[in-house]
């Protein structure tokens, strides 16, 4: 017997598991790009984070005496794990990944009541938790494969992550490299001009060499999400535009001490953040006008924190800050109910 459903007959019943599955699919290009550039560590992190996230989700559901199946089956823990694994350095010690995922699932998500109730984005909260706790490990990035003499093999990555032992004859200095944002800031602090900085071998067309390809791949995934109508354009477009405009203003004022706007767009987690993180349906704004304000504020905050803040990248901090503001923004941007007066009653 066919399923009888009442109208409206949408082609896709919007279910949590479908949305989360599409997000996972959309992350694939970015994942492949990162594996290509930074080696097997990315994949190991992803598998480890995913396993810990599912285990943590299941244990908390058991503790809360709630059904375990639906909580695991909606893939939301896996999406958190994937976003987290793509944000952390590819050689992060295993126990830090473990701590981060436990923090994300147990403290940030389940203690607030589980999926749909968490005010903060779990993946970003875990990233910030680790960044504040272990600043050195969290800012030690591998050099992209085209800039390094030695790419770690699968076994070398495993040993590095689980035992902390580097391959024989190699030092951290030979493997790691400053991220584009780090390099840009460090050299600007030394008094170099943008033109001098960009003459170095680290730089590609827009951002750092290699890194911009990661951003491109995430952009591809983002377009896929838009096409599948998992997200709407409001948050990503307003966030990226605000970032461009903020960076553009300062670049026009002094192009030798402020990197050009596209650099901001294609460095760090701007693209990943705009399409995958700021659009988190739970912790973002839900009204259309609210989403535009929410996205724009994140964009401006990203520029402000990157330029004057203490940490190299800012997307996680900006998203968490705006997560707090999201309910207030939603409250003041409620659409007018048809037939009611212009002002809503508070």
């Amino acid at each position: 017997m066919p399923n009888l459903v009442s109208s409206p007959h949408g082609p896709h019943p919007n279910r949590v598991d479908r949305i989360m599955r599409e997000v996972l699919i959309a992350l694939l290009p970015g994942l492949l790009a990162m594996i290509w550039l930074f080696g097997w560590g990315v994949l190991i992190n992803l598998l480890l984070a995913g396993a810990v996230a599912v285990a943590a989700e299941a244990s908390v559901m058991l503790l809360r005496r709630r059904p375990v199946g639906p909580a695991i089956g909606d893939y939301s823990a896996l999406v958190t794990a994937a976003l987290f694994a793509l944000s952390i350095p590819p050689t992060l010690p295993w126990w830090m990944t473990l701590l981060g995922m436990l923090f994300a699932i147990v403290l940030v998500k389940q203690l607030y009541g589980g999926l749909g109730y968490n005010p903060f984005n779990p993946a970003m909260a875990a990233y910030v938790f680790l960044l504040v706790s272990f600043p050195v490990a969290m800012t030690t990035w591998l050099a992209p494969s085209m800039l390094t003499a030695h790419s770690l093999t699968f076994m070398e990555s495993l040993r590095l992550i689980f035992m902390g032992s580097l391959p024989t004859g190699l030092e951290w200095d030979a493997l790691s490299a400053a991220t584009p944002l780090d390099a840009m800031r460090g050299q600007l602090d030394q008094g170099l001009t943008i033109a001098e900085i960009r003459a170095g071998p680290l730089w590609g067309d827009f951002g750092g060499r290699g890194w911009e390809w990661v951003a491109n791949a995430f952009l591809l995934g983002g377009v896929y999400l838009l096409w599948r109508r998992i997200i709407t354009w409001h948050i990503p477009v307003s966030m990226l535009l605000a970032l461009l405009i903020a960076a553009g203003i300062f670049w026009l004022i002094d192009p030798q001490t402020h990197p050009f706007p596209a650099f901001h767009l294609f460095s760090g987690a701007a693209i990943l953040g705009a399409f995958f993180i700021a659009t988190d349906p739970v912790s973002a704004c839900t009204t259309r006008r609210g989403q535009i304000i929410f996205g724009a504020a994140i964009g401006v905050l990203v520029f402000v924190i990157r330029t004057w803040g203490g940490y190299p990248d800012a997307v996680a901090f900006a998203v968490l800050l705006m997560n707090i503001a999201a309910p207030t923004i939603d409250h003041y941007t409620q659409p007018r109910v048809f037939g009611q007066g212009r002002r809503i009653k508070h």
């Binding site: 701590l99 403290l107 938790f129 504040v132 706790s133 272990f134 600043p135």
Partner: peptide, 15 residues
């Protein structure tokens, strides 16, 4: 022992 710096910082107090 590699301590988690966050425990010493204000967020650690709240958590």
């Amino acid at each position: 022992f590699q301590g988690a710096l966050i425990a010493i910082l204000p967020p650690g107090a709240f958590i």
